[in-house]
Simulated assay, not measured.
Amino acid sequence: MLNVKLDEIESIVIFEPNGELSEADFKYAVSIIDPYLEKSGKLNGIIIHVRSFPGWDSFSALITHMRFIKEHHKKISHVAFVTDSPIGVLAEHISSHFVSAEIKSFTFGELEKSVKWISGDNDE
């Protein structure tokens, strides 16, 4: 299951996976994000907040995830991986070659810090 929280004031979406990601999870995310993008044109950022990466429940879920990235990456300014998993740092380095967003990793406990980074409030 994928919890999706849209903060329209900050223009930030927080993804919190709880178990393996499914095709339905990404369709659910699209149903929340796309109407907002139609109104605003962009998101300041997406935060992936998960202690450890759960993976996908099927190959089709992985493909749907890749399609989601392809269709949305140009409308997102920042991506924050907020996780204790080593995949966060790896994703930061690999993703920067494929998406136009600025990408940064944070530890799982730094959710608020990641929101401030996306919002441009870095006076810590």
Rank of each mutant, 00 (worst) to 15 (best):
I47K: 12
I47S: 10
I48P: 00
I48R: 07
I48K: 06
I48A: 10
R51C: 04
R51Y: 07
R51P: 03
S52L: 05
S52E: 12
F53Y: 12
P54F: 02
G55L: 01
G55E: 00
G55R: 00
G55V: 03
S58P: 06
S58K: 13
F59R: 15
S60C: 14
S60V: 13
S60Q: 15
A61I: 08
L62Q: 14
T64K: 10
T64H: 04
T64S: 12
H65W: 08
M66G: 05
M66E: 11
M66V: 08
F68Y: 14
I69L: 10
I69T: 10
I69R: 06
K70D: 11
E71D: 10
E71A: 07
E71Q: 01
E71N: 09
H73G: 04
H73S: 07
K74S: 13
K75G: 11
K75N: 13
I76E: 00
I76G: 01
I76S: 00
S77V: 02
S77Y: 07
S77R: 10
S77E: 14
S77G: 02
S77K: 13
H78G: 00
H78R: 06
H78Y: 05
H78C: 08
V79G: 02
V79D: 01
A80T: 02
A80E: 01
F81V: 04
F81K: 03
F81P: 08
V82D: 03
V82L: 06
T83A: 10
T83I: 09
T83W: 08
D84H: 06
D84Q: 05
S85L: 01
S85F: 03
P86Q: 01
I87C: 11
G88N: 05
V89S: 15
A91N: 13
E92R: 10
E92P: 03
H93M: 14
H93Q: 13
H93F: 14
I94A: 13
S95R: 11
S96D: 12
S96C: 14
H97E: 12
V99D: 03
V99N: 05
V99A: 06
S100E: 09
S100R: 08
S100N: 13
S100T: 09
S100W: 05
A101D: 04
A101H: 00
E102T: 09
I103T: 12
I103Y: 02
K104I: 04
K104D: 01
K104L: 08
S105G: 05
S105E: 04
G109L: 05
G109V: 01
G109M: 03
G109C: 02
